[in-house]
Computed example of a mutant assay.
Amino acid sequence: MRAWLTVMMMALAGCSVQVTGAPCQDDLQCPSAQRCTPEGSCVAGARSEEHLLESCRTAMETLARRADQCYGGMTPESYQRLADTESVCASVVASVQTGRQTFVPERFGACVRQLRDLPCGAMTLDDFSQGNLLARCEALEPQATEGNPCGSNLDCQGGWCDTSTGCTGVCKRYVPAGKGCDGSVPCQPGSTCSLNVCRAHANLGESCAWGVRCAPEANAACVDNACVARKASGVCKSADECEPGQACVKLNVAAGSDAPRECRPARGLDEPCTPGAFECGGLLYCEAATARCRPWREHGQTCYDPDGTKELALCLGGRCAFGAFLQLVCQQYVAPGEACLMDGDCGPTGACRNKVCITTWCR
């Protein structure tokens, strides 16, 4: 019994364990001729391309767990719904099969560790839900060069995949930092389109005015147009200012929008809360009828501010849009080729281009 406990402690600490069937968190904790299963145990047989789909699902699950750690509140499964794991992984499999991307199995253990340790500053809900963070997995190598076919951004070497005319798309260059932009072509990673120029992400203490993003690795928030370190306690204006797992809580719900707030530990699923105080973690809102943190809304339910308390409640697996009687209701995503107003209308594997939904993960 003592030996088994030692093995478990070594695995949790990230050490290599040389025992078949031992608990593990990634392939690096298993012998070279074994791999770590999604259930978390070492099994015979090294990882290979045959395990690509399983590996992609594991990578997305790892990202979902990290998002849950950064935002709290819900379960990793809810974050996977937000990202549409199955569609993303179907696209990855199709790209590997057609040579637009290469899967390097022996690097997958390092990939899992990279995703597991992503800074929370890099874990924006937009980047997570659109699958962009999968590019941080070093086991997936892009093979498509500029001007060649692609199924997603992950296929392109140093560029992005333009699918505006349909699948498959074409690899194109990013707009370099310092060059002009209009939002139609992405800026190179590490920069943001601000005032029609791709501007480098700002570090701690630097200006983040006019939509410049604070560098994800800085674990910073943009406060009064400057990047400042996130805090575990103290006065705040938005949840972005607080450390992971914290909420920016309104101290007096009867007061106006400028009422004092402070960083406090976020409440989790079904925990008691005060409607209008914004105490709940990610993908949750404080339901007025129960005074408990409840999940974002489902298809057919009212959304955005369903109880009139200003608690934000968007949709899991759908979009929040006007329905009958101009009421905001959770609806299906807009299908590719149909009219849209914003990227969110088209779902996690789509985007709105020229007011029409396109597919961003071809499969």
Rank of each mutant, 00 (worst) to 15 (best):
G245I: 13
R136S: 11
C293P: 02
C362D: 03
G190S: 11
T85V: 13
C286R: 00
E61V: 02
S191P: 04
L12P: 00
G317I: 07
A254Y: 06
C30T: 05
C263N: 06
G183W: 12
A351T: 07
P260M: 15
V112H: 02
L82K: 03
C346N: 05
R294C: 00
Y304D: 12
P149I: 11
Q130I: 10
P336G: 02
Y333M: 07
A335E: 12
A226W: 00
L63I: 08
G159I: 04
N132W: 12
G205R: 14
G21T: 11
V43T: 13
P176Q: 08
C171G: 08
D345K: 05
C171D: 01
Q18C: 02
E262H: 05
R261A: 04
G166K: 12
N203F: 11
R363T: 10
C181Q: 07
G276W: 02
E39I: 13
C263M: 09
S184C: 05
V170M: 15
A64Q: 01
A291G: 03
G151F: 14
A64D: 04
C187R: 08
Y174W: 10
E243M: 15
A144Y: 07
Q332L: 13
L133I: 09
Q29Y: 00
L195V: 13
N203A: 15
P31K: 12
P189G: 03
P38T: 09
G344Y: 06
R100K: 11
V329I: 15
A11G: 11
G169K: 09
S152D: 03
V19Y: 01
S152M: 10
Q114Y: 05
G350I: 03
T6N: 09
C330L: 08
D343P: 02
E86C: 01
L5K: 12
T75W: 06
